[in-house]
Amino acid sequence: MAGSQNHNSATLATPAGGQGSVGDYLALLKPKVMSLVIFTAVVGLLAAPGQIHPWLGFMTILCIALGAGASGALNMWYDADIDAVMQRTAKRPVPAGVILPEEAFGFGLALAVASVLLLGLTVSIPAAALLAFTIFFYVVIYSMWLKRRTPQNIVIGGAAGAFPPMVAWTAVTGTVDAGSIALFLLIFMWTPPHFWALALFREGDYAKAGVPMLPNVAGRAETKKQILIYTLLLIPTVLAPVATGTGGTLYATAAALLTAKFLADAVALYRAGDVAAENAAAKRLFGFSVLWLFALFAAILVERLAGLPVLGAWF
């Protein structure tokens, strides 16, 4: 070993790597995605029927956040090659060269194991099992298998982002039931129109990276049609929390108004005549879709915190 032959620190030879700062490692966790995961998980925790000690509730959210961070790090390890050619992702720590792929892999794997073990040992084994499946689904099913193979990647892969409220719900109840499935469906059905709107105005990025997103495989017209179809499917989906007794009057009102606006934006995008108008409409829909999801979960959160009654399950 070179270093053992010369102890002068100025000439110590070491392998490349070890360049990442604490901030770079935090960036591997995809903090923006993590914040949405935490928010939806908190709603799942509070909406679940039953009681959980506040500390164990905190541990549940912490473990779900760590699991989401682990998924982000493992995704950045696997997708470093396509991240490097996409403008939106080129500055991520791995393609930027400040963290080696193997460092990101080790960091992500350690976090994944830690988050699942911590949740299983301290709170609930069924919830830990569901968290492990969530990480597996995002990393292996979505990132490794679907993302580079099919334009339906987002449709199936969207499940990974929909599991966190279900994991939190399971930490309270010990089981997966209709109420948690309703929250799952909200995110699951929201994902395709949200990401296809992004893919429309970032079409060049995905095409350059060779990722088969709907606009660069089926064309812009087909993408606009699919966005409209999935937005129409959101209408029965938003009823699910009401039907299962998870959402009350506030939620139902917010769902009706916001979904009407979502549909109006999807119709405007469908009717947009040229690329510039399409991109503008797609950006508007993308931005509103984030607000839509946040507001619907916030409505359920407010109902729980204020002790407002739910409308009663339909079955």
């Binding site: 070491t14 070890g18 360049q19 490692y25």
Partner: peptide, 21 residues
């Protein structure tokens, strides 16, 4: 094998901050 490079003072400072974290 990767190219061998010496740690710079900045590298050592980053390593120290990572260790503290």
């Amino acid at each position: 094998t990767r190219p061998l490079e010496p740690f710079s003072p900045e590298d050592m400072a980053r390593r120290r901050r990572r260790n503290i974290a």
